[in-house]
Design a protein around this nucleic acid. Structure first.
Length: 349
DNA sequence: AAAACGTGGAA
DNA sequence: TTTCCAAGTTT
């Protein structure tokens, strides 16, 4: 006879989790209301992109602003990319915003979202996790959804010793064995809720966990020991200079190159980012630049940055960028590092 | 496989 | 203060 389907091998885990979810699910803006039909694929997709490496707390107000301004994928596709980039400012990982726009246009061109994991996987910015999540949540497909929460929960359930990220194939296989045929979307969201509230990275609440009876790490008395992770490299320190050019109440802004760090975002002009303070190297235009006392520190994913601040008065607008009223700087949509530097400069001048 | 790619909150 | 980490994707 043929092998049993995974969901028949371990149905109790899914049943216990879904019962817990029915009682404890968070009411999140991108989730369908209880008892309603399947959620809008546009809202599911938008929320999943925003939630990549980003907390629910940070996403919630941004999601509300996006769907209020762009209620449909057609509206988003029709928006100027600069508007979208500015609206994304502060959320980080700006390739997501560039891909969001490209994805919206692709979806509109093809007449709607693909309704399978395989089709979704082809969209820009949609990787293995996001394709599975949308397929399961928006289209009811039995997709195997593995994000950081699921990886942690499953690594503990099976006491998986292999370190991340090399363990991902094994984690997908293990998750496959506990994913139900029905309610796969609820199952995925239940695993994520469990991971965020019960099966937390540190000090998990095993006594409140609906899966503890079948959890190998709990049985071994070491839930915090899983998942095993590769050691992280230390962040190098780099230095740079921000150039603040002001003329008649307006400040000079530039648009950064389309790819790379903060790619495509409006920004204050900067010099090179180097292993030692570069001083006044590579100003946006020649002038009598003055260094302000003090620096602004910022931490990116893979390095720390200490920024010196240089200011100059421009006599007549120099044609090297766009001049924005200083009083309207909040509406520009600057990445956090530049918003932080601008605030420091305005305090100091 | 490993590095690039943001940010802010919690411990 | 430092470290860890969050619904990852792309190259």
């Amino acid at each position: 006879m043929s092998a049993k389907r995974p969901s028949e091998i371990a149905p109790k885990t899914a049943d216990a989790l879904l019962s817990w979810y029915d009682a404890h699910a968070r009411a999140l803006p991108w989730r369908a209301a209880p008892g309603s039909n399947a959620p809008d694929p546009y809202r599911v997709w938008l929320s999943e992109i925003m939630l990549q490496q980003t907390t629910v707390a940070a996403v919630t107000p941004r999601f509300a602003a996006f769907v209020a301004r762009w209620p449909s994928v057609e509206a988003l596709a029709a928006a100027p990319e600069a508007d979208l980039m500015a609206a994304w400012a502060g959320l980080g990982y700006y390739a997501r915003a560039r891909n969001l726009h490209a994805c919206a246009r692709s979806v509109v061109e093809r007449g709607g979202f693909p309704n399978t994991e395989e089709g979704l996987r082809e969209l820009p910015g949609v990787g293995a996790y996001t394709a599975a999540a949308i397929a399961a949540i928006a289209f009811g497909e039995r997709a195997v959804v593995v994000d950081a929460n699921v990886a942690r929960v499953v690594a503990r359930l099976f006491a998986l010793e292999q370190p991340l990220p090399a363990a991902m194939p094994a984690l997908r296989a293990a998750t496959d064995t506990i994913t139900p045929d029905l309610r796969a979307g609820d199952f995925a969201q239940a695993m994520m809720d469990l991971g965020s509230s019960i099966c937390t990275p540190r000090a998990p609440h095993c006594l409140a966990c609906p899966l503890s009876a079948g959890c190998a790490a709990y049985r071994a008395g070491n839930p915090e020991g899983f998942p095993v992770k590769r050691a992280k490299p230390i962040k190098p320190q780099r230095y740079g200079t921000i150039f603040w050019a002001e003329d008649a109440g307006k400040v000079l802004l530039v648009t950064r190159p389309p790819r790379g760090l903060l790619g495509g975002m409006r920004a204050l002009p900067t010099g090179p980012w180097a292993d030692a303070p570069p001083g006044l190297a590579d100003p946006p235009f020649p002038a009598e630049w003055q260094m302000l006392p003090g620096t602004v520190a910022h931490v990116f994913t893979h390095f720390r940055l200490e920024l010196a601040l240089a200011v100059a008065r421009a006599d007549g607008h120099v044609a090297v960028g766009a001049w924005w009223p200083v009083t309207e700087l909040d509406s520009v949509g600057l990445p956090s590092v530049f918003a932080k530097a601008a605030a420091a400069i305005r305090r100091a001048t």
